[in-house]
Design a protein around this nucleic acid. Structure first.
Length: 343
DNA sequence: TTCTATGATTTACT
DNA sequence: AGTAAATCATAGAA
């Protein structure tokens, strides 16, 4: 605290620079030549202080500190300082927020890497789902995989960030202590300390920026891999296709399975409900577009269901609960409508 | 390599 | 929300 009060305070009793030395310096014989010699000596000592060993330098420093001319020299330094500080001031003050950094921050926030952790990274999953426009309830395997990888990235990011912050604050306090220590021998304004701190922070934030950049890259790579995986098409098993086709052709007049039916089909085929929906969507449109092409297939499945029906009918009586007649043979171009199905 | 089949995605509509 | 229609992208056949 005592140091602080000393910062840049013109030494009491000392007015202007070299010309007004403390009175007792003049009692040194009052010889101008001798005084010049004296100052020259001191300056010489200061200049050569770096050439000495540490112990010598410490001793010298102490000696200089106690020198009777020290206050005068100190005040000179203060004055010089005051002038230079004035010229520095204003040159660098404003710190415009880096657009690049803001972009990175925004992206990390959007991806759920930075910002508050929401229950098990669901924010990230939601963000991914929203970004890809996919239905959020399927692809659970990929989703969990993606989430796991993302939370890993998140973890690394945060631990690194913490490390940087710790290092930064450690370094800052170290430098501040150093400056405070130095303020015993040279005048250091609080402004200067502030400046130094901001320089340090800038340096560290540029390192942080690198971290953010590489984190963003990692997320991008993960994202693209994830999306690629989703886009990668795997044909359904023969058996699954058979089950779906069976349903489709036996419900040809109304090939719109209910939610329950879809679930059942999904279970039978080992695929998701939205895959079933996709399949029926594709099938309807493709069948409608080119009925002729599907004729053979239709006949095949019609015969199949008919055969199945007869075996069941044998025991049950009239027609099985197949809701529509699998009008085998000539397929009239059915005109599907989502609400009142066939027209 | 090209072509076709097919699962997934996108867009627009109701 | 569910669908039609167009489109994308890849698997698998030729």
């Amino acid at each position: 605290m005592e140091d602080q009060s000393r910062l840049l305070q013109p030494h009491p009793g000392v007015g202007m620079a070299v010309h007004s030395l403390p009175p007792h310096s003049q009692s040194d014989g009052g010889d101008p030549e001798g005084r010049k010699q004296d100052i020259g000596d001191i300056l010489q000592q200061i200049m050569t202080i770096t050439d000495q060993s540490l112990d010598e330098a410490q001793a010298r420093k102490h000696a200089l500190n106690c020198h009777r001319m020290k206050p005068a020299l100190f005040s000179v330094l203060c004055e010089i300082k005051e002038k230079t500080v004035l010229s520095i001031r204003g040159v660098q003050e404003e710190e415009p927020p880096d657009p690049q950094l803001m972009r990175l921050d925004n992206m990390l926030l959007a991806e759920g890497v930075s910002g508050p952790e929401k229950g098990g990274g669901s924010a990230a999953a939601a963000a991914a789902a929203a970004a890809s426009g996919g239905s959020p309830n399927d692809n659970s395997i990929e989703h969990s995989d993606y989430r796991a990888k993302l939370s890993q990235i998140r973890q690394i990011y945060h631990s690194e960030l913490e490390k940087y912050e710790q290092a930064c604050s450690e370094f800052t306090t170290h430098v501040m202590n150093l400056l405070r220590e130095q303020s015993r021998t040279r005048p250091i304004s609080p402004k200067e300390i502030e400046r130094m701190v901001s320089i340090i922070h800038r340096k560290f934030s540029s390192i942080q920026m690198q971290l953010k950049q590489s984190t963003c890259e990692a997320v991008m790579i993960l994202r693209s891999r994830f999306l690629d995986a989703r886009r990668k098409r795997r044909n359904f098993s023969k058996q699954a296709t058979e089950v779906l086709n069976e349903y489709f052709y036996s419900h040809l007049s109304n090939p719109y399975p209910s939610e329950e039916a879809k679930e059942e089909l999904a279970k039978k085929c080992g695929i998701t409900v939205s895959q079933v929906s996709n399949w029926f969507g594709n099938k309807r449109i493709r069948y409608k577009k080119n009925i002729g092409k599907f004729q053979e297939e239709a006949n095949l499945y019609a015969a199949k269901t008919a055969a199945d029906a007869t075996t069941v009918v044998g025991q049950q009586g009239s027609q099985a609960n197949s809701p529509s007649t699998p009008n085998s043979g000539g397929f009239p171009a059915p005109c599907y409508t989502p609400d009142r199905r066939i027209q």
